[in-house]
Amino acid sequence: MLTDARLVAAKDLRIEMRSKVTVSQVVPFAGLVLVMFGFALDANRPTLDLATSGLFWVTVLFVAVMAVQRSTAIETTDGARRALLLAGVEPSAVFMGKAAAVAVQLLAVELVLIGGIIVLYDASIEEPLLLVATCVTATAGIAAAGTLLGALVAGVRARETVLPILLLPVLAPVLLGATRAFDDALGAVAVNGWSWLAMLVGFTVINVAFGVTAYGVLLEET
């Protein structure tokens, strides 16, 4: 299964590399959102210090919606999903591969965004290990839930509007947990970030497990 998942992830990432959408559109969009938040909060330094973690993860969620829509569109176009089914690849492997590809793209954007908050919001990293662990865990959870819900709206005309309605409420715990853990990692608020990380691990494990189980049903029936 892991070999198949790696193949699917490599395929998706190769398509993204060739289309250059992530580099030319998604990353500039993420940077733009950071700048807009700066304008909206009147570039007030104390406010930005307190809000940096939340703004970072809200931006990541916006980017996640775009990344999941891209990931779904790849399979919808030209009946590629049927071809994937006919290729005999396990649906769970397809899920793992597509989620991994979304996660890799999100992590790349997050890397740029961390540079953005350091430069634009004057953030300083107090606990690098917690910061990296939060990024990896939260991103895996976002990618898992996003890939599953993306398959759910595949082939639907109104999927651009329906996906955020479905995805964002489900990702509410990630926004809460990752923001609090980042608050600790950036030294903005005195909270125990590691306990929030444990909650993120729980969210990710549950959504990966459910995705592996349910993805096949959606892939074959929708």
């Binding site: 839930a145 599953l148 509410a172 715990p173 809460l176 909650m199 729980g202 459910f210 049903v217």
Partner: peptide, 16 residues
């Protein structure tokens, strides 16, 4: 799938 995701995630939402 949405109905089950909602049920599965509510305890996590509540805890968080």
């Amino acid at each position: 799938v949405i109905g089950i995701i909602g049920a599965v995630n509510i305890p996590i939402v509540n805890r968080s």
